[in-house]
Design a protein around this nucleic acid. Structure first.
Length: 147
DNA sequence: GCCAACGTTGGC
DNA sequence: GCCAACGTTGGC
């Protein structure tokens, strides 16, 4: 299983809106960046990701799961752009802010820290676990997610 | 609201 | 194929 991070401006598409979509999930559409698209092409159904609010919150607020592999982005006729579908799994007990992430030496290599503009990015196993723990989840909580 | 970082476009 | 100009993102 691989881990990812999906970044969204809460004014454009928020965690609450994602949750409201329920198990049907929603296209992660609108991505017009090759790097981000290529990461989505690598995703498999069942991969987990963080849902990150940029701008005002600047925090990881929830956990999502990929529920459809990359397919054409329905918001454009341009054949180049694809997206996956994701659905909400659970909110994190407490948001993990960018400030907290930046202050943690174990997370200094995160793409979020090194390339703040990339909207879809890979997360390492150890980084995924670490952020979960920082959010207040127990090790058992993390294990039950990744089992 | 500013600006640094980055990606894309288009002229040469 | 290079690079200047431009547009966008997102942290501050």
């Amino acid at each position: 299983m691989a881990f990812w991070l999906f970044k969204s401006e809460p004014d454009a598409w928020s965690w609450d809106q994602q949750v409201a979509k329920g198990d049907a999930g929603e296209e992660w559409d609108g991505v017009r960046n090759y790097q981000a698209r290529n990461f989505m092409r690598e995703m498999a159904v069942g991969d987990l990701g963080f849902f990150y609010h940029s701008q005002k919150d600047k925090a990881v607020v929830g956990i999502v799961v990929v529920c459809a592999e990359a397919h054409h982005d329905s918001t454009t006729d341009d054949e180049r752009w694809e997206c996956v579908d994701i659905k909400a799994v659970r909110p994190v007990p407490a948001p993990v802010t960018l400030e907290t992430i930046k202050a943690d030496p174990a997370l200094s290599e995160m793409v979020l820290v090194k390339n703040s503009r990339l909207s879809v990015q890979p997360v390492r196993d150890d980084e995924f676990t670490r952020v979960c723990i920082l959010s207040g989840m127990s090790h058992e909580d993390v294990l039950s997610l990744t089992a």
